[in-house]
Amino acid sequence: MITISLCMIVKNEEPVLARCLDSVASMMDEIIIVDTGSTDRTKEIAAQYTSRIYDFTWCDDFSAARNYAFSLATMDYIYCPDADEYLDLENQRRFLRLKGALLPEIEIVQMNYITPPDFNTVQNCKKEPRPKLFKRLRTFSWVDPVHETIRTDPVIYDSDIDILHRPHVMHAKRDFAMFEKAFRENRVLSEKITRMYARELYKCGDEEDFLRATDYFSLHYEAHADAESACILAHAARIQNSVDDFFSICLKDMCSSSCSEICYELGQYYRERQNPQEASLWFYNAAFETQPVLDIEISGKKALLQLAECYRTLAENELCDPCSAGDLLSRASEYEQQAQAWELPEEL
Rank of each mutant, 00 (worst) to 15 (best):
S242E: 15
Q340E: 15
R184Q: 09
Q277F: 08
D61T: 03
S159V: 03
R66L: 10
E128A: 10
D35L: 08
Y335E: 08
L102W: 02
A332Q: 05
N285I: 00
K126Y: 05
E278G: 00
S256Q: 13
E208A: 14
V10D: 02
A308D: 05
S51Y: 00
Y68D: 01
D209M: 10
V109P: 03
L72G: 06
A172T: 07
S63Y: 04
A279M: 09
A234P: 11
I78L: 03
K302A: 02
D82H: 08
E297L: 06
Q337M: 09
E105Q: 05
R19F: 00
D158P: 04
R195L: 14
V24H: 09
D253E: 15
A223P: 00
R151A: 12
Q277I: 03
F70Y: 11
D160M: 09
M28V: 07
R238M: 09
C320G: 01
V243A: 02
E289V: 06
P129G: 04
R166D: 13
Y197A: 09
E107D: 10
R41D: 13
M196K: 08
Q274T: 06
R195G: 02
S63H: 01
S23W: 13
V188A: 02
P15W: 06
Q92V: 05
Y202I: 11
A332G: 12
E30V: 07
Y86P: 00
E180P: 00
